[in-house]
């Protein structure tokens, strides 16, 4: 890990994005286990460097599309944790007025075009976002986050090909956390690197270390440059690790069944993206320890306030069911 080519303010920016995601997700996990959140939640803990590194390389005009595991993407793009938390509680003050929930958060004002609960559902839409930029001669770039599991959906293949044939400014970011639910990626595909699939569509495919936010930032910046230059899409495969279960509370229905290799899990956990970056920033004296602590306590405080505000917010009015329909 090194940041020689990355400005210090970018380093700190990435660090804050990661920290904000981590503290938010820790709070969400706790709330879910306490039975305070409806539905189900899929946490992004362990994968934060991917969203943070990618989004730090984007402008506010660039757009992203996310998945069922989407909280980290929203935060990395600059989402408001108060409105996010309220949405997770299903409250009227949430991003989608309580109509969307954990798997459907969007903030169109910051180019976050929506989280999608259907695996692979976001890729075609991201192609369309890229198409709109191309059509209107805009500089905008479209990014799509998706998992290793999604790379086995037809939509992945069709989307890469479509984006490639039109040379659209789309960046496909595959978060390979090695599992789709309880199925190891290696059981669901006969290749090690999903990036290899890019060759079949005539676009570059790169593998990057998903625990190294700087590397993610670097490969994204290069893909953005390529996209803005009109040279077309890129597939980035970030090798990453999902710290927790597929969904919170999965122990209950696993009923003692296991599906992860403990040794592999321990090894991956040692590569915690927050810890790595924290150590890096401390060792390289980018920010003094007391300032790092202040940063952390400010974020923790902001998350606690978001939870409190969400709790005290009203449920959506029943009339809201008949709002946001046909114009």
């Amino acid at each position: 890990m090194h940041h020689q080519d990355i400005a210090v303010d970018v380093v700190l920016d990435i660090y804050q994005r990661i920290l904000r995601i981590r503290r938010f997700e820790e709070a969400v996990g706790l709330l879910f286990r306490q039975g305070q959140l409806p539905g189900f939640v899929h946490l992004y803990i362990g994968e934060e460097a991917v969203a943070a590194g990618v989004c730090a390389a984007l402008t506010d005009e660039d757009t992203i599309i996310s998945t069922h595991r989407g909280h980290g993407h929203v935060i990395a793009k600059g989402g408001d944790i108060k409105r996010m938390m309220a949405e997770l509680f299903g409250k009227a003050t949430g991003y989608c007025k309580g109509k969307g929930g954990s798997m459907h958060i969007a903030d169109f004002d910051i180019g976050m075009l929506g989280a999608i609960g259907i695996v692979g559902g976001g890729l075609p839409i991201a192609v369309g976002a890229g198409l709109s930029a191309w059509y209107s001669n805009s500089n905008r770039v479209s990014v799509c986050f998706f998992g290793d599991g999604a790379a086995n959906e037809g939509s992945f293949h069709e989307s890469l090909n479509l984006a490639s044939t039109l040379a659209l400014p789309v960046i496909f970011v595959c978060e390979n956390n090695q599992y789709g639910e309880f199925t190891p990626a290696q059981n669901a595909m006969n290749i090690t690197d999903i990036a290899d699939r890019a060759a079949g569509y005539g676009i570059p495919g790169l593998v990057a270390d998903g625990a190294d936010a700087f590397e993610i930032y670097r490969v994204t910046a290069a893909a953005v440059e390529r996209a803005r230059a009109g040279a077309g899409p890129t597939l980035i495969e970030a090798k990453t690790h999902r710290r927790g279960g597929h969904a919170e509370g999965e122990e209950a229905f696993l009923a003692g069944q296991t599906y992860r290799d403990e040794a592999e899990t321990a090894e991956a956990q040692a590569k915690d993206p927050l810890l790595l970056l924290h150590n890096y920033v401390s060792e390289n004296k980018i920010l003094p320890a007391n300032q790092l602590e202040t940063l952390d306590s400010n974020i923790t405080q902001a998350v606690a306030e978001a939870v409190e505000a969400a709790r005290n917010s009203p449920d959506p009015a029943l009339e809201s069911l008949f709002e946001d329909l046909w114009l």
Binding site: G39, G90, G98, K99, G101, L321, F322
Partner: peptide, 16 residues
Amino acid sequence: NKDVPMPFSPALEKAV
């Protein structure tokens, strides 16, 4: 059901 997409909020879901 009411003629709208499925909402997340438990209160709204029940009402649909």
